[in-house]
Design a protein around this nucleic acid. Structure first.
Lengths: 208, 208
DNA sequence: AATTTTCAGTGAGAAAAATCACAAGGGAGA
DNA sequence: TCTCCCTTGTGATTTTTCTCACTGAAAATT
């Protein structure tokens, strides 16, 4: 896809939000939308949306707006979610279970392809059609299936160590559910999910 | 605690990150840290950390740095998590179950105090010491317990409607797990948890 | 056919956020 | 006490991000 230099990360981060809204519009069987309508739904200015999209091409038509399916597909291509990504889940406690059962990954480009845990009691357990494997088998299995993305749902104390092993096994993107900032080499991407951090962010504003 | 005007939201959003790191340091029985050390752990510049904290007061000492417990407590006060917040969870599918069982809320200031679902088969179910109640009982129960925060884990199609009911019941902060942007009045805070959006953000960069 | 409305894309400018770099305070050791 | 080393808090500056406002094109209306 040739040269795509220097697009701000904050712009990339908004594309999945646009995708999500477009997906809803497809379900609503809408055909066209405008930057203004999209912006109103998302609480984002229309100029912001137009400028974001302009980094990647010209997807709209003056007077008409954007064809929803077309724009949806274009953003999927940009984000590379017009294919399926395999995911390894490490740590199958309550959270890992919920992740393994979650039906929302598949329709948006992701497929949970392997489950790992270190607790001997959990090895062999069947979850959502997959068998929990020992962490010692992680590297081989990740290579065998060519898995590139991992979700980390182990306790905070073990997260860094497991992350190191994942990176050693070739993983280049980690979605970390443990409430700890990971140290990783610059070619590895990490994103964080910390519900408590979000809650704490909101309670700041709950002053009467 | 008087006037605290105009502090950028992006600064507020980093405070929970600092809190998380300080909490870890307390567990490691460290006593002092510096903006530089903290920054290295978090991948944030030391100047950024100092400037962020300077919005709220002077918490460090030249030559010494920050007393970890003291700074931790100060940030807890700023975020108002030096008390316990009660949370209502709406939607007890797999995700709602995982939330209800999650042990990570309590030590960081939050207590799941009520569970709601609309499916008659789920009403009455016991989860983590709580009984699932019907959505129709939501308003009364939220008032009775004076719950101010809610977590929304219902399907996307119902999220907006349930959010409306929550707001009608007096909820002022919503952590939304449904992959949809909610429309809410300006005095209601919403934060989003969408793992797939994070994954899609990362796959952008997975070009070889 | 002419006019009006709608809406994308974009350069210029404004606003916000991050970084720089330094003065000054505090501790440790000589 | 004096000197050296750390480290904070912060004004100044740079960088990044967002918004404004306009051009031009397409559609809708008269």
């Amino acid at each position: 896809m040739g040269s795509r230099p220097n697009i701000p990360d904050i712009v990339i981060g908004r594309l999945p939000i646009y995708l999500r809204a477009l997906y809803r519009m497809i379900q609503e069987e809408k055909e066209y939308t405008s930057s203004q309508e999209l912006g109103e739904r998302l609480g984002i200015s229309s100029a912001q949306i137009r400028k974001d999209l302009s980094h990647f091409g010209e997807f709209g038509k003056q007077g008409t707006g954007y064809n929803i399916k077309f724009l949806h597909e274009k953003i999927r291509q940009i984000l590379q979610v017009d294919r399926e990504w395999l995911i390894a889940v490490v740590g199958v406690g309550d959270l890992g279970h919920a992740i393994a059962h979650y039906r929302g990954f598949a329709p948006r480009g992701f497929h949970v392809a392997a489950l790992f845990d270190s607790a001997p009691t959990k090895i062999g357990e069947q979850i959502g059609g997959l068998t929990v494997m020992p962490v010692s088998a992680m590297k081989d299995e990740i290579h065998r299936q060519k898995i590139q993305v991992a979700m980390l749902s182990v306790p905070a104390e073990h997260a860094q160590q497991v992350a190191n092993e994942l990176i050693g096994a070739g993983i280049r993107a980690i979605l970390n559910y443990a409430p700890i900032t990971l140290a990783v080499p610059p070619d590895v991407r990490v994103q964080y999910i910390d519900p408590v951090a979000h809650l704490q962010h909101m309670t700041y504003y709950l002053r009467s």
